[in-house]
Write a protein that binds this DNA or RNA. Structure first.
Length: 660
DNA sequence: TGCTGCCCTG
DNA sequence: CAGGGCAGCA
């Protein structure tokens, strides 16, 4: 569909470990780059009949048949494919094309010499003594032969000239390609100045990428370091990361990803793609992507370092370089905090379809093989969440559901993929360090991302090849998480963003505690910062549909289990849903993962009702009816309770008392 | 016909 | 969580 990630669905099947990082432009180790050119089945067909270049070697042996055999053998060798061929040829290639020319000349010279020698011998024979008839015949023959030889010599010389031309042509193309590659990569690697080149389209595209980002994102120079800075920083990106960011388990993963930066570059390129027309463009795109993610990392690191050195509390801390930019982005940014922007990274990761989740987070409740009464409180339950300290009673009422940017204590499970996404966090962090409490949230402790997310993940994943291109002209309603963050980044507090952010997802999940079947109007009411269109609405509805699905699956599962294992006990207990029960834990984990919101009692009651309905339906055998759930759905549908007013504000609601 | 919700699948 | 198919409904 519209998903920008579609561009990246192609998984590398065959990784080329391009050694570009360590190869000077003049280096002959351009083998992998030229290897496609040498492949008889692909590039050679496009590259001026390079295959004829094989005949360069056939010029070497004097015997024509042998030449063909050699050529055939060579061709077969090449046709077998594999990496050995390019390397094998690379070995020859390493002699340099200059050597080739020398070889040609030498061979030519040898052949001419031998011919002249033979002719000289024949002539000497002719002049020596009287000629017999056979000698005369032989002389005639030799004259004819000489003529034929001359012809064939001329033909061969023509052929050689043609071959030479073709070789030169091929070399020229190769050099051109190399130059392009190095202008993309070498520019970045050797820290050449931005304005230095400009005679090449590829470089122009690279520069364009940045300028596009600036134009489209309205990023000023404050947030966006000069290119040169980025490049310099990027050079040591891999190693610096571990120093800058305290090591956490997640960071280890991140570091691995970072260290694999070069690998990433390699992985983004498939040899097969290279062999396609436009392979170099793909390569250039991948390089650009690497650049953009590097820029993101650098920005993160710079800001993080800045934040580290700035020990002033977040309420008063001002990131001087960022303020003008932030204000330029949003003139009203100091009037009203946009907690929604400060979505928890965990939630964001959760909402990003491009982000792989940790395996243990993959839940499949139906195959959980635990045999205990999941509805009864478990003494040894590993759930750390409940019973909850009812500190909320000590807090002002308005704080109970106050909107606070939620920030889970854990960094996201995996590096998050997109540059724009990083930008969102960048902005979030800058916001979190600004005095933003002017309007009515005087004492509410905004989450300090610096304290909770000591490391901000770099973005080594491929993500989008060209986000601006991918986004432009797309239906923006589906820009969840990825572009949503992007949009949120530049929105003023009063503005609506097109697309839903991970924060919206979190909010929707919390809303589910109150409303299982919200109408589209309700959604519009409670997501005032979302610019609703058909796609956004349907997506929100879809979210709730998914929430319900999960909810009902759990209900059915536990009801069946209760009916199976201890039906009498369950009936006697009235199928109470304890906050210590496994079912509650699962629901809480799903809708309130960061556990920063107290699950309302009403939701527990509704869950009990649903559980009971499922239980009785199963007990009475109504579940044989294919539509047996519908009646339960109708009952649950009526149990929606009004969503607290606090949800009407933009951003993620959060229980203050849950904050640590 | 369009909207909505459920179901299934990835 | 998203996409697609399907059915029910207005």
């Amino acid at each position: 569909m519209d998903c920008p990630s579609d561009l990246f669905q192609q998984q590398p099947s065959q990784v080329c470990h391009f050694d570009l990082y360590h190869s000077p432009p003049e280096s002959t180790s351009t083998g992998p780059i030229i290897s496609p050119l040498l492949h008889p089945n692909s590039a050679s067909q496009r590259w001026g009949g390079y295959r004829q270049g094989q005949c360069l070697f056939s010029e070497l042996p004097a015997h024509e048949g042998e030449q063909e055999v050699d050529a055939d053998r060579f061709g077969r060798k090449s046709a077998t494919g594999g990496t050995a061929i390019p390397q094998y040829r690379l070995g020859d290639r390493r002699r340099g094309s200059g050597d080739w020319s020398q070889d040609l000349l030498r061979v030519k010279q040898l052949r001419v010499d031998s011919t002249v020698k033979r002719e000289g011998e024949v002539e000497r024979d002719g002049h020596r003594g009287r000629r017999s008839v056979p000698q005369l015949v032989r002389a005639e023959k030799s004259i004819e032969e000489r003529g034929r030889r001359k012809e064939s010599r001329e033909g061969r010389q023509r052929q050689r000239r043609e071959l030479k031309l073709q070789l030169e042509e091929t070399r020229g193309k190769l050099l051109e390609l190399q130059r392009k590659v190095w202008q993309v990569y070498g520019e970045h690697h050797v820290e050449e100045e931005k304005g230095g080149e400009g005679d090449d389209g590829v470089m122009d595209e690279t520069a364009e990428m940045f300028s596009e980002g600036e134009a489209e994102d309205h990023l000023g120079g404050g947030l966006y370091p000069p290119l040169g800075v980025n490049e310099k920083k990027h050079e040591s990106a891999g190693n610096e990361n571990s120093e800058v960011f305290p090591e956490t388990p997640a960071d280890l993963d991140l570091d691995m990803e970072l260290d694999g930066g070069g690998v990433w570059l390699g992985c983004s390129l498939v040899q097969g793609e290279w062999e396609n027309i436009g392979g170099s463009e793909k390569f250039a795109q991948a390089l650009k992507q690497e650049l953009s993610s590097a820029v993101a990392r650098v920005i993160d690191r710079v800001l993080h370092l800045y934040a580290e050195t700035d020990q002033t509390p977040p309420s008063t801390a001002v990131l001087a370089p960022e303020i003008p930019t932030s204000r330029a982005l949003d003139p009203n940014s100091d009037k009203k905090q946009r907690p929604g922007v400060a979505a928890s990274m965990t939630e964001q990761a959760e909402a990003l379809p491009l982000v792989a989740k940790r395996p243990q987070e993959k839940r499949n409740p139906l195959i959980q093989g635990r045999h205990k009464n999941l509805l009864i409180p478990q003494a040894n339950s590993s759930l750390p969440l409940l019973p909850q300290p009812h500190l909320s009673a000590l807090l002002p009422t308005r704080n109970k559901d106050s909107f606070l940017p939620s920030c889970p204590p854990n960094p996201p499970p995996l590096p998050l993929p997109l540059l724009h996404y990083t930008m969102q966090h960048l902005f979030t962090r800058s916001l979190s360090s600004m005095p933003l409490h002017k309007d009515g949230l005087p004492n509410e402790p905004f989450m300090d991302f610096r304290s909770h997310n000591p490391s901000f993940p770099p973005l080594p994943l491929l993500g989008q090849l060209n986000p601006p291109l991918a986004d432009r002209g797309r239906d923006e309603g589906m820009r969840v998480g990825i572009d949503g963050g992007d949009t949120a980044l530049y929105l003023g507090p009063g503005a609506s963003q097109e697309g839903l952010s991970p924060c919206h997802l979190k909010k929707a999940k919390l809303m589910f505690f109150y409303a299982r079947y919200p109408s589209s109007n309700t959604l519009k009411t409670y997501f005032p910062d979302v610019k609703f269109n058909r796609c956004v609405t349907s997506q929100l509805i879809k979210w709730f549909s998914n929430f319900r699905e999960f909810f009902y699956i759990q209900m059915e599962r536990f009801a069946r289990q209760a009916a199976r294992e201890s039906p009498v006990t369950a009936r006697e207990r009235g199928l109470r849903l304890s906050r210590n029960s496994e079912l509650f834990r699962i629901l809480n984990m799903h809708y309130n993962k960061s556990n920063d919101y107290q699950v309302p009692d009403r939701f527990v009651e509704v869950s009990e009702v649903a559980l009971r309905e499922f239980f009785t339906a199963i007990q009475s055998g109504r579940d044989a009816d294919p539509c047996w759930k519908k009646s339960i759905y109708k009952i649950i549908c009526k149990l929606d309770s009004p969503v607290p007013d606090s949800f009407r504000l933009p951003g993620c609601p959060m229980d203050t008392h849950r904050m640590v």
